[in-house]
């Protein structure tokens, strides 16, 4: 057992957990942040993607000790109260989800993609960058549309800030 301390969605968190605990289990089972999903548990599907210190990573493949001291953002931490994050809004408006299982991971990966590419995103890049996120429902088409739409909205909202 170890005590891990980290910041999750802006709040300081401390938990006593076994060293073998994965970050995703800390989030879901100890902090009740069940928006982060476990799809494959084998590092392939991306349903568990969260941001650690601003980078989109698979939380099923991170030990809590590795995340000790870091800043974690989950799908629950991106909206401003009732106002959806532009990426969430774009997924809703473009029908970017069906069952929604992959969606939290898609959105966390997609925000990271837009942050890295800024205005230089095109369809091919989005498809290549989403290789680590698997969706069994949508056929990806509307997901790609959502990300491209959100990239425009995020530029506008950043310019406004």
């Amino acid at each position: 057992m170890s005590t891990v301390k980290l910041t999750v969605n802006g709040k300081a968190v401390s938990a006593d957990v076994e060293d073998r605990t994965l970050l995703v289990n800390l989030l879901r089972d100890h902090l009740n942040l069940t928006g982060t999903h476990v799809g494959c548990d084998t590092s392939q599907c991306g349903a568990c993607v969260v941001h650690i210190d601003g980078r989109a990573v698979k939380s099923c493949t991170v030990l809590v000790g590795q995340a000790d001291g870091s800043n974690v953002t989950t799908i629950e931490g991106i909206s401003k109260g009732d106002e959806l994050h532009p990426m969430q809004a774009a997924f809703r408006d473009n029908h970017g989800l069906q069952c929604g299982y992959c969606t939290p991971g898609m959105i966390m990966s997609a925000i990271d993609i837009v942050n890295r590419y800024g205005g230089k995103l095109d369809e091919d890049t989005v498809r290549h960058e989403l290789e680590g996120n698997i969706c069994r429902c949508t056929g990806y088409h509307n997901i790609v549309k959502s990300v491209l739409d959100a990239a425009g909205r995020m530029r506008v909202s950043q310019a406004a800030e």
Binding site: A56, V57, K58, T61, V62, D112, E131, G132
Partner: peptide, 9 residues
């Protein structure tokens, strides 16, 4: 290598 999340780690 792999995908963006794999490359971050």
């Amino acid at each position: 290598i792999g995908d963006p999340a794999v490359r971050y780690r």
